[in-house]
Design a protein around this nucleic acid. Structure first.
Lengths: 308, 308
DNA sequence: CGCCAGCCGAAAATATCTTTCACCTGTGAC
DNA sequence: GTCACAGGTGAAAGATATTTTCGGCTGGCG
């Protein structure tokens, strides 16, 4: 304790440097000794690589000793090598994520699988954002009100949209509403005839011009039911017979990724919004119903379960 | 040498996870013990803060022991605490520089409809990002390879997952593969018996323990077919019979938004990735098939169509 | 040529991380 | 109800990594 400040001079004004590490290295380089410069250089050149090394490793890499590495870390403003290493890891992560947004291109035939995942996820996120931004909450609210009070709900959709319709029907059934998704156009029409005021009919069609979904909606509309269209083309024929139009977004499509694919994401978001809206309005009955259906399902899972 | 695997079980397919740590915590949480959950929670809640702590510090903070902290780090896929800490520092740096924390609250009963839309869209975007980050591209690639060469593809899923299965089957059929989604558990099993080497069976179950989806997969597995599991619980029973496990992410759930709902988004992304992967590999036949199916559908739309 | 200042690394000292092991708790069988 | 058992758990031993100490070495200067 004769001399508490022996090897512990730090560059004073340096708090735990965040990202401007390369700059700091350059600034401080002149005041460094040869060995320290080698260490600093290595660190600046490959933060990620150095973050993976222990003091000893970095010392060997730079042909110096542990002590020198620690001294360098101190000079750069960190309490010790451990903290420099942490900062290095952070820096590496930043650089990493920084160059990520290069996924805006279309998916190509020869894209590696990792790129496919990234691009697809990005596209779908974009689709969701677009849909949310473009959704008319007034129309949505009106549709929810109609659904919550409906005596009976019929849903029409064919092809990819039929799955969305079934999803909605499944959900509504779970909270005690009477909903049915029709996929057979003929049966859809014959059922639509049964509808009347107080009932709700929903057509789901991305193109807005799928005859098989429009026809039953028209019948329901004529019968006095409240009609809702979920479509990517609010100016299409389907809107003619819809009291409320909910617009889904259309993502950029490519050869490998037909429109039908991204429209599904968009449609599902709308459907989820409808469901949650209805669940809110009918909370008194919906909550217990949801809990009950959850409970009922528990028995379908293998008891020992988690293999903990 | 007696027992090389004592405390060294890692979650197998887990490489040093990059940024999707919160997601990983959620995925693995169910298979964790109470103490480990506390640690995982702390880490997920405050990456930056935890990165500043030593093992001992984090153990004290969470009221557990060093051993438990290390065990948790292992479970999350890191060789030890040191590496988890490094990853944490990286994560913290990213959040710091990156976008807003955006701590969205759960959807409440009295949220206005506009909030519901925004929260839902945000949650689903989050789910997509998590899924993409957590997806093992090696497993995915292997599954794609198997699918592209398959003589026949059977898909099992019940409940909400059945819709995802149907979606996948629809897509694969479009590019000329022989795929069938089974929703009836009995028929699924009786059909699984027909499978043999060179065929592919896919089970989709969020819980990883849905007997009705596992049983046919087991049969297919025993018959020598290549088996794939798409699940949110990679440690669940279903993985026992799966050659390739594709992990979907689990979103924070709330009363109004049961897990089944967000799992669908995640599952669909995986399914889309599979589809595109297969389409790439079989481009020669897939491209014309896609074009043809598109062509065939055009006639189902009202001729005057778009009212443009 | 000898002396001194400061650089440098080997090795000791310390901190941190990992592993082991025994205890403890809750669970299921009888 | 009691017993046996399968894990979960943390204290402490053991292994690594980091920091500090300390003495040798180099090169400049009188």
């Amino acid at each position: 304790m004769t001399n508490p400040v022996k090897e512990s001079f730090t560059s004073a004004s340096a708090p735990p440097a965040p990202a401007a590490l390369a700059a700091k290295v350059r600034t401080l380089a002149p005041s460094m000794t040869r060995s320290m410069q080698r260490v600093a250089e290595a660190v600046a050149a490959d933060p990620a690589g150095c973050a993976a090394l222990t003091v000893t490793g970095l010392a060997e890499l730079t042909g110096t000793s542990e002590a020198t590495v620690v001294r360098t870390a101190r000079l750069l403003g960190y309490p010790g090598y451990r903290d420099l290493r942490l900062a290095l890891a952070g820096l590496a992560a930043q650089q990493q994520s920084g160059r990520a947004p290069a996924v805006t291109a279309d998916i190509a035939v020869d894209d590696p699988i990792a790129d496919v995942v990234a691009k697809l996820a990005y596209d779908e996120q974009q689709t969701l954002a677009d849909t949310a931004a473009g959704l008319d909450t007034v129309q949505l609210g009106a549709a929810v009100t109609a659904l919550a009070a409906a005596r009976r709900i019929d849903i029409y959709g064919v092809g990819a949209s039929s799955l969305v319709g079934m999803d909605l029907a499944q959900k509504l059934l779970r909270i005690g509403l009477i909903a049915h998704a029709h996929t057979d156009p003929h049966l859809a029409v014959t059922n639509a005839v049964q509808l009347r005021s107080g009932d709700v009919a929903i057509a789901i069609t991305h193109s807005g011009s799928t005859g098989d979904a429009i026809e039953p909606l028209r019948v329901a509309f004529d019968r006095g039911a409240t009609t809702v269209a979920i479509t990517g083309r609010p100016d299409g024929p389907v809107s003619q017979y819809a009291d409320h139009v909910l617009t889904t977004s259309t993502a950029r499509e490519s050869e490998l990724r037909p429109a039908a694919m991204s429209s599904r994401t968009s449609q599902l978001l709308v459907v989820d919004c409808l469901f949650i809206g209805v669940a809110q309005r009918t909370y008194e009955t919906a909550a217990p119903a949801l809990a009950a259906s959850y409970e009922a399902l528990a028995h379908r899972h293998t008891p020992r379960g988690t293999s903990r």
